[in-house]
C-alpha cells in the first residue's frame, strides 16, 4: 500500500478528512520551499501537493500564474523540485507528497528518468493537469512501476463513462475539480459538489478529494462533509505572495490560514 493510501485509510478509520494544501515549489524562492512544507504539516496538512512551476499554466488563475513566474525567475526546475522533496524527506518520512503540474517539464526530463528520480526523492504521487488518461497509456504504467500513484482529475463535465474509465487508470485518490473554471476563481457550490461526489462514489472506490474554491474553515468544513479530502491552493499561494519578504510573518500567516481549516474539519468529524 502506498504512503498516500495508508494515510487516507488511517484518516478514514479515525473518521477524519484529509487536509491537502497546495503550494508552488520555488515560490517565493527555491530556498524557502522545504521550510514551508514543514510549516504546512505542523499546521495540520495530511498530504502535500507541490506544484511544479510551468511557463504556461493554462488551468491556473492569476494567483498561481504569478507564483509560477516568481519561481521561474529563480530558475526553479523540475530537477530542483525533486531535490526539495528529497530534503523534506530527511525530516519527514511520513507525509505523502504529490507533485502537481503540467506535462512538458516531465516530458523534457524523460518519463522514465522522472519516475525513477521522483521515487528516489520520496515523491508519492503525480498529478498532471494536461494529461488525460487517453494520452497516459505510455506514461501511467511508468509511474505505477516506480510505485507512484497516478492521480487524475475529474470535473463537473466528466460523464459517468469517463468517471469509471478514469478511476480505472488512477490510484491514490481522485482530484475532483469543484467547478468549471481556473484555480483561484470563485464558484464553489457545495450542493453541486455534493451531488457530483455522490455520483463519483457510486462509480469508484477511490477516495475523492475536492479542490478549487476552498478558501476558509467554512468552505473546508462543508466540502469535508461530502469528500474524503479538501485541497486548498490559491488562498495559501496568495498568503505566500503577501509575505514574500518576511519568512516569520509568512509562517505565522500560513498557520493562521490552515489551522482553522484543520480544526473545522476535525470538529465536523468528532460530531
Amino acid at each position: 500500500m502506498s504512503r498516500i493510501q495508508q494515510r487516507l485509510q488511517s484518516l478514514r478509520e479515525q473518521g477524519r478528512k484529509a487536509l491537502i494544501p497546495f503550494i508552488t515549489a520555488g515560490d517565493p524562492h527555491p530556498d524557502s520551499t522545504v521550510a514551508i512544507m514543514h510549516r504546512l504539516v505542523a499546521s495540520g496538512a495530511d498530504i502535500l501537493e507541490l506544484g511544479v512551476p510551468f511557463s504556461d499554466p493554462m488551468a491556473d488563475g492569476p494567483v498561481i500564474q504569478q507564483a509560477c513566474e516568481r519561481a521561474l525567475v529563480h530558475g526553479t526546475s523540475l530537477r530542483q523540485v525533486l531535490g526539495m522533496v528529497e530534503q523534506f524527506r530527511e525530516d519527514d518520512p511520513d507525509t505523502p507528497v504529490v507533485l502537481m503540474g503540467y506535462l512538458n517539464p516531465m516530458e523534457a526530463m524523460g518519463y522514465e528518468t522522472f519516475a525513477a528520480r521522483a521515487r528516489e526523492a520520496g515523491v508519492d504521487g503525480v498529478l498532471t493537469v494536461d494529461l488525460p488518461p487517453e494520452e497516459a497509456a505510455d506514461v501511467a504504467p511508468l509511474f505505477r512501476n516506480a510505485g507512484l500513484d497516478a492521480i487524475f482529475l475529474l470535473a463537473p463535465t466528466t460523464t459517468d463513462d469517463r468517471v469509471s474509465a478514469i478511476s480505472g487508470h488512477g490510484s491514490g485518490y481522485i482530484y475532483y475539480v469543484s467547478f468549471k473554471g481556473v484555480t483561484g476563481a470563485a464558484g464553489l457550490d457545495v450542493d453541486d459538489v455534493s451531488k457530483n461526489v455522490e455520483r463519483i462514489r457510486r462509480l469508484t472506490d477511490l477516495p475523492v478529494a475536492v479542490g478549487f474554491g476552498i478558501r476558509d474553515a467554512d468552505s473546508a468544513a462543508s466540502v469535508g462533509r461530502v469528500a474524503d479530502g479538501v485541497i486548498v491552493g490559491s488562498v495559501l499561494v496568495n498568503t505566500i505572495a503577501e509575505h514574500q519578504t518576511d519568512p516569520d510573518a509568512l509562517h505565522r500567516a500560513l498557520d493562521e490560514r490552515l489551522r482553522p481549516m484543520r480544526e473545522a474539519l476535525d470538529a465536523r468529524a468528532s460530531q
Binding site: 493537469v129 494536461d130 482529475l153 470535473a155
Partner: peptide, 8 residues
C-alpha cells in the same frame, strides 16, 4: 492534452 473539464 487538456484538463479534464474540456474533455467532454
Amino acid at each position: 492534452f487538456v484538463s479534464e473539464t474540456l474533455m467532454d
